[in-house]
């Protein structure tokens, strides 16, 4: 049983505060969704937890099983068990998906230990079959020239291979048509289980029709302003984000 604890997190880009005191605890086996209007700091949250160098944490902490992630480099955080599925994954020309994932696996092994290539490919192909991804995919350069749907499937494949403790999915539904959305959601549902905690960051409710969350949080102006179960998402969909804003004003 693992936990990812975000404690009163404050984040800035340059001088500008983006996340302003956000707290959230995710345990293994739970699926949380953070919803909120654009510009409210949702993507910043994912990137800062991943360790993106552009963001500065000015207060609070992020703890994985009680240990702070903030002093760690991005690669250490990933090896510790945090995976972020990015909204706009980078294109890496000349690096095949197979070689990329191999390097990621190798990085998780002890110094001097060599990856068993046969076992690796067997596992890779099994994961691809599970996610219904064509095997030709592995020889393509990472995300280069991929459609929006292919990029997201590539992220899910990486997640399946790396078996993180926690997956943060940043706007995984953006830019996807309904078929692609269903494929991606199937992938996440397949990987869902007692050993994985998931945080889905989304603007729209529709993803949550396919990946049903245990908890829904509403983020506004850099912090979580409302939490509830999956019915909160439906309420938000019906009433719109203005409802939350008004409530805040009245409060």
């Amino acid at each position: 049983m693992s936990s990812l604890v975000i404690q009163d997190l404050h984040v800035t880009i340059g001088e500008k505060p983006i996340v302003k005191g956000l707290s959230l605890t995710i345990n293994s086996g739970e699926v949380h969704a953070i919803m909120g209007p654009n510009g409210t700091g949702k993507s910043t949250l994912a990137k800062v937890i991943a360790g993106h160098p552009d963001y500065t944490v000015t207060g609070g902490d992020v703890l994985l099983d009680g240990e702070s992630l903030l002093a760690k480099e991005a690669d250490e955080r990933a090896r510790a068990g945090v995976f972020v599925a990015f909204q706009y994954p980078s294109e890496i020309p000349g690096v095949s998906i197979a070689n990329f994932l191999r390097a990621a696996q190798q990085a998780r092994m002890a110094e001097g230990e060599e990856l068993d290539a046969t076992a690796y490919y067997k596992r890779l192909y099994a994961k691809m079959d599970m996610l219904k991804i064509d095997r030709k995919f592995t020889s393509r350069s990472v995300n280069e020239g991929f459609s929006g749907g292919e990029k997201k499937r590539c992220e899910i494949l990486q997640m399946a291979m790396l078996e993180p403790k926690f997956a943060l999915m940043d706007e995984t539904d953006s830019g996807l048509d309904i078929d692609a959305l269903r494929i991606v959601a199937d992938g996440v549902n397949t990987l869902r289980g007692p050993n994985l905690g998931v945080l889905m960051i989304t603007h729209y409710q529709r993803l949550l029709n396919y990946i049903v969350p245990d908890f829904v949080h509403v983020m506004y102006d850099g912090r979580i302003v409302k939490s509830g179960d999956k019915t909160l998402a439906l309420e938000l969909e019906a009433k719109g984000y203005d409802w939350v804003k008004k409530e805040l004003v009245t409060a």
Binding site: D75, A78, F83, V84, S90, E91, I92, L162
Partner: peptide, 19 residues
């Protein structure tokens, strides 16, 4: 690109070699 590879657990030096 370097960050993306690091975010998958690949140390900076190995990421740069891959790139």
């Amino acid at each position: 690109q370097e960050f993306y590879l690091q975010a998958r657990g690949i140390p900076r030096e190995a990421a740069d070699k891959l790139l």
